[in-house]
Design a protein around this nucleic acid. Structure first.
Lengths: 326, 326
DNA sequence: TTGAAAGCGCTAACAG
DNA sequence: CTGTTAGCGCTTTCAA
């Protein structure tokens, strides 16, 4: 291996430059112990001058808190939320990379999560955990060793902070838009019922249609096009007079659109359709939808684990995007 | 921090179980030194019995070859290939996670890559590099310290192995399909000309149309919808009689479709359009296209860096998917 | 062929 | 408040 230009500046160099021991330098830099303000100032100055960056690998080795953050995807079928997962992982990678860390992905079986969760807790290479599509059961089974370095994208708990999109507002905005444009029999196809973070949009939909004096018409769904197709079929069978559908996500909206087309309904003439996510295909197919700032959410989630925050609940805004379908 | 169930089995345990020293156990497991066949067998057996997995963090610390693989995206504008990048990163993460490793992403400026590349070579936290959208210039500037642990998705070099989709076959298949279905004035909108891996499809297109005795009609493009829209406009201005367009990717096909629609051309009646990638939106919009096995490619790429392969050139097959547009 | 010993860069006990 | 002393788990000289 040829000699590389600058053989990397270590804590030793910083300590020497500041005229202190390695231990003191470490304390000054990490804030993990008593240091005089003056010493801290000097050490920090030396570190900055030398362009010092702590080696996360060494840090991980000694502290037992690994050099990577892992996204744990709770799900039955792994690639349900392929697009969603990919965006979360990529955004997370972008945050972690400059910190010298990496990101990983691991599937967690919804029914018996304990095995995987315990293995994760025991794995010394893991620094933090991002739970995706989690349930209260999974949250309850979270090993204590993971508390304090786990964040949930979705629903949280007393010990696990959560970040998510403001799905309630997204549902409300779509209903209000539909009401404004004259729709009166607005139905909803929900997300998977086992996923707690999908309950808020449903509640918001209920509240919004009732506030407008309109009937509540809900059918259970999921996140796939097939769920949307089936959901729309159920809706048409049960309430043939519906004039609008609010879908749990764009994919479901696409499925609903195909059912509507096949049944001879015109969109938006007979039935308006509104999705959620604003995936690239939504623009191409002129689907009215609401945005899902996945990158912002993933960024915040990773920052939260890195900072070791224990209680927080953040919701990111979702904007209405009006196109041809509603 | 509470005591976790099984405090992880280390090399020490394996060595003791096999009745040898840590050093010998290490040699037996890594193959990094002389060991008797018998000892090796015993150590390996002990390791398997105990479920030993070497801690990549510790290994990274001592060897200086970090605990993560980084995807270096060469590009002018970062999110050009957002969908593509996201799939590569996610697939890579899935391969690396079980190995105890993580994945990262870093942008590399196409014009002056040296700075970033040198920093990467110096970074002890990096185990391997996956180059995305790379050029021969970047390949030439690759620091020696990175050789042997770098792979390119796209074009390779004498020292950098490459994996990619068989873009030539993808172009040929589309042209042949168009010829079979009676098209006679088949044009192509290319990818970005600075990207060498886009040259093969163009050459394949040329060869295929010429083999059919048809005229070559090429305009430069890129990978965005805007490039497709502009490319189609140029095509229509220069050769108003074209009856088919082969696009560098689906996104470009979508852009071309919008231009065709605006110009009053009917698809596929007047002009057929075929894309490349088979993104989810392609199915929704009934776009004829060819597949791009990104996950397979990324998986192979990561495996290649992990194995330290130095010369290899693998092309993954691309299948024609016939839909309504061609 | 093997073992003992050194050390990767860092943090965390424990004295001072 | 600070320095000294131990390691984290592994690979890799160097002797034996």
């Amino acid at each position: 291996m040829p000699a590389d230009a600058h053989p990397a500046v270590t804590l030793e160099h910083v300590a020497r430059a500041a005229g202190v021991s390695r231990a003191t330098a470490s304390r000054a830099l990490t804030g993990g112990g008593p240091v005089s303000t003056e010493t801290q100032r000097q050490v920090r100055a030396a570190a900055r001058a030398l362009g010092y960056v702590a080696d996360p690998v060494a840090r991980a080795l000694v502290s037992g808190r690994g050099a990577r953050v892992v996204v744990a995807v709770v799900s039955d079928c792994t690639d349900v939320s392929c697009w969603y997962l990919a965006r979360v992982v990529t955004a997370g990678a972008q945050v972690l990379t400059p910190e010298g860390l990496g990101i990983g992905v691991v599937p967690v079986p919804r029914q018996r999560p304990a095995g995987v969760l315990d293995a994760l807790a025991r794995d010394r290479t893991i620094g933090g955990l991002v739970l995706l599509n989690t349930t209260r059961e999974v949250l309850a089974e979270l090993p204590r060793g993971l508390v304090g370095r786990t964040v949930s994208i979705g629903v949280g708990s007393a010990t696990v902070p959560a970040v998510d999109v403001d799905g309630a507002a997204a549902a409300r905005r779509r209903v209000e838009h539909l009401v404004r444009s004259g729709r009166r029999r607005i139905a909803m196809i929900t997300g998977p019922s086992w996923l707690p973070c999908t309950h808020r949009p449903v509640a918001a939909y209920r509240a919004a249609v009732q506030a407008a004096g309109l009937p509540v018409r809900v059918v259970p769904g999921g996140f796939c096009a097939a769920d949307g197709a089936a959901g729309a079929a159920t809706l048409l069978a049960r309430w043939p007079d519906i004039d609008a559908i609010v879908a749990s996500c764009d994919e479901v909206a696409f499925g609903a659109l195909s059912t509507l087309r096949r049944s001879g309904r015109r969109v938006p003439g007979d039935v308006a359709v509104a999705g959620f996510d604003d995936v690239p295909a939504a623009e191409l197919t002129d689907l009215t939808t609401t945005t899902h700032p996945v990158a912002d959410i993933a960024t915040a989630a990773v920052r939260t684990v890195l900072d070791g925050v224990r209680d927080e609940q953040r919701f990111f805004p979702s904007e209405l995007v009006v196109r041809a379908s509603a």
